[in-house]
């Protein structure tokens, strides 16, 4: 019997789930290798658990989601979080440092109908997570690697090195060293496929902090390059603003 795969959505934009459909060349092989039991974006068929692998997209943003993720965890042998929302709370975690009521009133004409938590938090804050795929959106090669490895019972190869290592492996010249462009590469986990620096942009950290991210030293260098407090604050306040290392650095430049 083929392993059962489920894809779940929480507070998110669907982009990470789409990455699975975006696998194109490999999509038929994936469909051959697993039994897609629950994946609303691709099929209306909904089969009951338990599931061998659950891919979870999105952050926990409502009380209902807090309940639902526990059920999914109970029903899943392996649970893999996919994307910046599921692994760090997403861009919506910017609200975590604001007054929720006034924020809600400033966005919605009838805020009394909005039943959301004051915070947007990653899945791992609520249930144990077996593996996480970073990024906004995730990288399809990492997704395929994770599925392939787990089907064979081996550990997926997911690098813990910085974005800088990806630049240098690819031979991409450093945008910060050559042009003084602010870049989060040195403190950001690699794995995206060297997307932004290879077209001359600074990394904006969508893969979130790498282990042991020395954000303070990087922020000092960004300031030395001429970046103002606000620029530095906003750089750390992107799609992974809720990741502790980035949230703390952002706070240091807020005010």
């Amino acid at each position: 019997m083929k392993p059962k795969l489920a894809v779940w959505k929480f507070s998110s934009c669907d982009g990470c789930q789409l990455t699975l459909l975006d696998c194109e060349d490999e999509l038929l092989d994936i469909a051959e290798a697993v039994d897609i039991a629950y994946f609303l974006e691709a099929t209306r068929t909904q089969r009951e658990g338990p599931y061998d692998i659950s891919l979870v997209e999105g952050s926990i943003s409502t009380a209902h989601e807090m309940e639902r993720i526990r059920e999914i965890r109970r029903d899943s042998r392996l649970l893999i979080t996919i994307g910046a929302c599921a692994t760090a709370g997403g861009i919506q975690a910017l609200r975590n440092t604001q007054d929720h009521d006034s924020l809600r009133a400033s966005v919605y004409p009838s805020p009394q109908f909005i039943d959301a938590l004051a915070t947007s938090t990653p899945i791992a804050d609520h249930v144990p997570v077996d593996y996480e795929l970073r990024g906004c959106p995730i990288d399809k090669h990492q997704l395929i690697e994770a599925i392939t490895a787990l089907l064979k019972g081996r550990k997926p190869t997911l690098p813990d090195y910085s974005q800088c290592a990806e630049c240098k492996l690819a031979g991409t010249a450093c945008v910060m060293v050559t042009k003084g462009i602010p870049c989060l590469g040195p403190v950001t986990q690699g794995g995206c496929g060297n997307l932004c620096p290879s077209i001359g942009r600074g990394c904006y950290g969508c893969f979130g902090p790498k282990e042991g991210a020395n954000t303070e030293a990087l922020a000092a260098e960004l300031a030395a390059l001429g970046a103002g407090q606000r620029t530095i604050r906003d750089l750390f306040g992107g799609f992974t603003a809720g990741a502790p290392a980035f949230a703390e650095e952002r706070k240091r430049h807020d005010g």
Partner: peptide, 13 residues
């Protein structure tokens, strides 16, 4: 270590 980013650049160049 307070300054080092452990980013690997030195080893990669």
């Amino acid at each position: 270590a307070e300054r080092c980013l452990s980013c690997t650049n030195c080893t990669m160049v």
